[in-house]
Computed example of a mutant assay.
Amino acid sequence: MPWQSIGFVTSRRRAAKLRCRVVTGSNSKEYHQITPFCKIHLHKDRNTFYGYLMSQTLKQLSYICAVRDHGSFAKAAHAKNISQSSILAAVDAAEQEFGLQIFSRQKGRGVVITAAGERFIAAARRLLGAESDFNREMRSQGLDGRQVRIGLFEPFGSIMMVEVLDRVRDRLGDISIELIEADQPSLKRYLDRGEVDIILVYDLGPDFDGNMEVIGRASPHAVVPASSPLAQKASISINELVKHPILLLSLPLTVTYIMTLFDYADQRPNFAFKSRSYQTILRAVASGFGATILNAWPREPLLVDAGIKRIPLKEKLPSATIMTVDHYGDRRPEVLEVFIQTLRDYFQEAYQERLA
């Protein structure tokens, strides 16, 4: 993002009061860092300083919002893939700049946001949202027409995404692809902040805003060890399955959905193994830890499927809708239109093959 004028200051002393960075001369490489929030440029022909808002400011605002979202400096740093000291520096600079306390550090309670902090976060989110709108507008006009950033519910990457994107490349030629795999609440945040162009999720919540396109419905199915007697069955009931140790894919919202499915059984499940990783759950099933329930059924067996058997459930249990969400409105770039249609075609083919 280019520098944006925030007005004039007429002396170095005023520049220091603004806690800005001073740059002497348009080509000078000498910087005086006072805070990361502003930059002052000294015109060669007059004693006037121009103040500019740094693009770095927006990044630092996102760091501060991450602390609010995750409830701790350490978790925010992990989510942003930066050092904790960078998070602390952003918070300290903002608190010093605006003369307020955003977070209260309380022993035993961690980081607690203040009332002033809530107002700061609300204003920061509006600014970050405006940046996201700007980026989407520019991308929709083809400035980055050969690039696409896709947010995925974590299991979808191994289940279908490589095959789908290979078809997209066949239609559009070489494109630059970035996949961000996360749980659904995180994906919503990434989309709202403009960090991804589109997300592929289940309709299990949270409430998504934007253009939602239904790709298909994924019915739950059982996954059992290939060595288990259950693997000989053409289908299995939820009551048969629940008698065995159950492995739980413990992603946010997924847990609630799976627990709802077991409400149809006569007894409560014995959760013998939990993991947030789709691949780990499959490997644990293959190793004989127990059985599980999943939704999306890959068109081609995964490598780990050699030790498992996927079996339809006899009951018509609630299925989950797979959908895309984006914020482009009627300005959706061609690459996203092709991606959505390719997803639909792929899902329909895979579903028909399983019925055949």
Rank of each mutant, 00 (worst) to 15 (best):
residue 268 R to D: 07
residue 25 G to A: 04
residue 104 S to R: 13
residue 203 D to K: 09
residue 184 Q to F: 00
residue 201 V to T: 04
residue 51 G to I: 10
residue 118 E to L: 12
residue 92 D to S: 14
residue 149 R to E: 08
residue 181 E to N: 14
residue 129 G to E: 01
residue 55 S to R: 06
residue 50 Y to T: 13
residue 149 R to F: 00
residue 258 I to W: 01
residue 39 K to F: 12
residue 109 R to C: 08
residue 334 E to W: 10
residue 118 E to M: 08
residue 113 I to L: 04
residue 14 R to G: 12
residue 14 R to Y: 04
residue 30 E to P: 00
residue 251 L to V: 06
residue 201 V to H: 03
residue 129 G to R: 05
residue 92 D to C: 11
residue 354 R to G: 03
residue 41 H to V: 05
residue 72 S to Q: 07
residue 262 F to I: 07
residue 222 A to E: 00
residue 7 G to C: 02
residue 22 V to S: 11
residue 183 D to L: 03
residue 166 D to S: 14
residue 281 I to L: 09
residue 355 L to N: 11
residue 233 K to D: 03
residue 337 E to L: 12
residue 36 P to C: 07
residue 236 I to Y: 05
residue 138 M to D: 10
residue 154 E to N: 11
residue 284 A to V: 06
residue 290 G to F: 05
residue 73 F to T: 03
residue 102 I to H: 00
residue 336 L to E: 00
residue 356 A to P: 09
residue 239 N to T: 05
residue 75 K to C: 06
residue 245 P to Q: 03
residue 111 V to Y: 05
residue 133 D to C: 02
residue 196 V to F: 02
residue 30 E to Y: 13
residue 17 K to H: 12
residue 6 I to V: 14
residue 266 D to E: 13
residue 273 F to Q: 03
residue 264 Y to E: 07
residue 15 A to M: 04
residue 96 Q to N: 13
residue 76 A to Y: 03
residue 188 K to F: 09
residue 11 S to W: 09
residue 220 P to Q: 04
residue 147 Q to A: 08
residue 104 S to E: 14
residue 230 L to M: 11
residue 117 G to F: 03
residue 333 P to D: 01
residue 331 R to E: 07
residue 11 S to T: 06
residue 167 R to W: 05
